[in-house]
């Protein structure tokens, strides 16, 4: 049993038939070819499968595909504008925050929301906010730095009244 769902995926309208019990993670990866949400545990413990659903980070391994009907889904593939990387993406590269990279799309999406919620986060706030995302490689130091840097850059841009 299933149904056709319609939603926006990285800005583009999508309509697709899904089973009622199908997980968003699998639909994105296997039916829509969007690979940045990663399988890391399937039980909501690692954050590698994070996507933004109407702007909120959700774990796609725990989200049924039918739940996104009529909503807006953004993944790491959809952050670049006119092939320009997003500030957060750039900050991750500039701070050397990437190693194997498997966890990185999840962190970047959570960081996007974090900065929207709190444009001037202190380190405790950042660490608490990203604690649901696991990284085995980096020890999080350069990830935290990257988020701080992105905050700085956004502040600078806003100061100059630029669109970000």
């Amino acid at each position: 049993m299933g149904k056709i769902i319609r939603f926006r995926l990285n800005g583009r309208p999508v309509s697709i038939y899904v089973e009622n019990n199908e997980l968003l993670l699998n639909v994105l990866r296997e039916k829509l070819g969007v690979m940045s949400p990663k399988y890391g545990c399937g039980i909501g413990e690692c954050g590698a499968c994070t996507v933004l659903l109407d702007g909120e980070p959700v774990l796609s391994c725990l989200t049924l595909a039918v739940e996104v009907d009529g909503k807006d889904v953004v993944t790491a593939e959809g952050l670049a504008k006119d092939s320009e990387l997003d500030v957060v993406q750039r900050a991750f590269i500039e701070e050397g925050a990437i190693q194997c990279g498997y966890c990185i799309p999840g962190f970047i999406l959570v960081a996007k929301k974090l900065l929207e919620e709190n444009p001037e986060p202190d380190e405790d706030f950042i660490r608490e906010y990203i604690r649901g995302n696991l990284c085995r490689c980096t020890g999080y130091v350069n990830i935290v730095r990257a988020i701080k840097r992105a905050a700085e850059e956004l502040k600078f841009h806003v100061g100059k009244n630029k669109q970000v």
Partner: peptide
Amino acid sequence: DGVAKVSGQM
């Protein structure tokens, strides 16, 4: 490989 990794294309 930074761009590929941050943009989910790796």
